[in-house]
């Protein structure tokens, strides 16, 4: 029976000579995509997820906003001695259901960025190095068992591991670049869709109508003296050390000037909330445009400047906070 022969331990130097040109070729190949910064890609993934989340809060009416508006609608009709307007409520429901279904676009956008982040922070290139070395050790163990020799020197296995790491790193960068293009192309389409004047009106006007319903119900309750303005007085004066007195409500009810003054503040706040809806939508569209620019920079290997994007995201978060703030 023929005995299998394996290269002697000293042959690692030969392997090294063979591997060097390979290493050179790999480095050359990797050079095509070295400009792409993997950490920037991971950061862009995180930012993309933030944009998707902030856009959902700004573009779509929350369950709470919707419920408040419907309750306001019922309140007006019951107040006027009318029956619950079923046809109108059904129409509200249909519109809300259709608009909520559109949320899936942003949920998917968030998923896309989650996958992009995972790709960018993937540790496979590092893992493959130890895997190759592990494989080399396994081969040596096998050779030692059957032939009592080692086939691969330690340095050869390590070089092979380095090469595998370089190949996979280059492949990963290429994949990140391809994914960035994939996302950017879809963001362009999303941006065009969101900038469509009809889509813009559909999204903002419904939210505005819901907000106005609630605002009018609050104003009607106020007109009947049912609301205690003490928290509002507190907000207006707390920073300089005052708070509403225990008899504030009685005084407000008796004093028309004070009541009108507070009503003015209330109307201003309610109006402000409605006006913010359009601004919130506009900012969401801006963030999508900024994301497109950042993807272009990433693909070109340019440094990413998140300042503008983060500024818009912060503005978006402020608007969300303002719209959901419980005064």
């Amino acid at each position: 029976m023929n005995k299998i022969t394996y290269p002697q331990p000293g042959s690692g130097a030969l392997s090294f000579r063979v591997l060097l040109p390979v290493l050179f070729l790999i480095l050359l190949f990797e050079g095509c995509s070295t400009s792409l910064n993997v950490q920037n890609a991971a950061n862009l993934g995180t930012t993309g997820k933030e944009v998707a989340k902030a856009s959902i809060s700004n573009i779509f009416a929350s369950d709470c906003e919707y419920r408040n508006a419907i309750e306001a609608e019922i309140f007006f009709h019951s107040y006027a001695g009318q029956e619950t307007p079923e046809a109108l409520l059904d129409a509200y429901h249909d519109v809300q259901a259709e608009l909520v279904a559109r949320k899936v676009v942003f949920t998917q956008l968030s998923d896309v960025y989650k996958a992009f982040s995972e790709l960018a922070s993937n540790t496979a290139p590092t893992e493959i190095k130890s895997s190759i070395i592990g494989f080399g050790n396994a081969v040596n163990e096998y050779a030692a068992t059957v032939n009592n020799t080692k086939t691969l020197s330690k340095s050869t296995a390590e070089i092979a591991g380095e090469i595998a790491q370089l190949i996979l790193s280059a492949r990963k960068k290429q994949m990140i670049s391809q994914s960035s293009v994939l996302i950017r192309e879809r963001l362009i389409k999303l941006s065009i869709l969101l900038e469509d004047p009809l889509v813009q009106k559909q999204m903002t006007t419904f939210k505005q109508n819901l907000a106005q319903n609630r605002a009018s119900a609050i104003q009607l309750l106020w007109k009947h003296g049912l609301l205690d303005p003490s928290p509002m007085i507190n907000q207006m004066t707390t920073d300089i050390g005052f708070k509403a007195g225990s008899d504030a409500l009685t005084i407000v009810r008796k004093n028309n000037r004070i009541r009108d003054g507070l009503e003015g503040v209330m109307t201003y706040r309610l109006k402000g909330k409605i006006e913010q809806i359009e601004k919130g939508y506009g900012n969401s569209v801006k963030t999508v445009r900024e994301l497109i620019k950042e993807h272009e920079k990433l693909e070109k290997g340019e440094a990413l400047t998140y300042s503008r994007l983060h500024q818009i995201i912060t503005e978006l978060q402020k608007i969300t906070e303002l719209l959901s703030r419980k005064h």
């Binding site: 559109r102 899936v104 676009v105 998917q108 956008l109 998923d111 896309v112 989650k114 996958a115 992009f116 995972e118 790709l119 994914s179 994939l182 996302i183 879809r186 389409k189 999303l190 869709l193």
Partner: peptide
């Protein structure tokens, strides 16, 4: 359509 395209993109990246 946009949601579908984004879903496909997520699957491709994964």
């Amino acid at each position: 359509r946009t949601a579908k395209e984004l879903e496909i993109a997520a699957a491709e990246i994964k």
